[in-house]
Amino acid sequence: MLLRRLLDTLWLIAFWSAGLLLLLVLISILGYLVYRGHSVINLEFLLASPKGLPLGAEGGILPAIKGTLCLVLLAVAAAILPALATAVYLAEYARQEGIRQVINTTVQCMAGLPSIVTGLFCYALFVVRLGFGISLLAGGLALGMMVFPVIVVTARDALLAVNNHYRMVGLSLGVSRWYLLIRILLPQAAAGILGGILLAMGYAAGATAPIMVTAAAIATPSAGNLWEPVMALPYHLYILFSQQVSLDKAYGTALVLVSLLLILNIIAMWLRHRNGR
């Protein structure tokens, strides 16, 4: 009996410490990034182009911020319509269990696709076969392919979370499904869908492997030309570290990237939480 009780206590300690460890990991990651990165960040770092030799050792990261912004917007623009249509189908229109299961499995498989395989596919298709070259367009489409399942899953769940009474009342009033969808269901699910889109943007902004092979350049003067390579924050971070350009600047870049993503994620969480109520 005593042994039993001892074992129980030990397990309790294990469970609690596992939970606390998680908290500790996040706090130490963020804390360390702030500790090492905060001294680099100033207005010049955010608003200047990389300078110095090797490039990036001095100056700032403005082109990388701009490039990441372009990539993310392009990715969401490419993915949003097909993703919403798929989500609407899954949540509202799917009547045959078979088809729904196939599409659900597809979305799940796409979510599980290793990002480097997405990159490989888009490199072969867009960069080589279609002749886009290493460009913003190819990278945006690659990221679009990556965020597609994220938007589908979040939008589907947001639609499914809408109270079923709305559907029943609407249908009993003889309102068409389309009208019901546009006027009732989508507005009700809007916060959740928007949260999902923000989540997808964060996902796209942090992805490195796909843009490494399809879009990224170490340095470009301009950002925003569809047919030119772009700089991007995660790739810039990778280059700063792996070419041993400047560890301080790398910490600064990482801090900027992570803060950006945390803000996006927190807003997304808040929106989706509101939707769930």
Partner: peptide, 30 residues
């Protein structure tokens, strides 16, 4: 699922979400 008091779970769930939100390149870099 079983042991955490409500307030603890309310802290840990967002922590999980934020951990997935940190990009792999930052994990690699750190």
């Amino acid at each position: 699922a079983e042991f955490a008091p409500q307030w603890m779970a309310n802290i840990l769930r967002p922590v999980l979400n934020l951990l997935t939100g940190i990009p792999s390149v930052v994990y690699g870099f750190l």
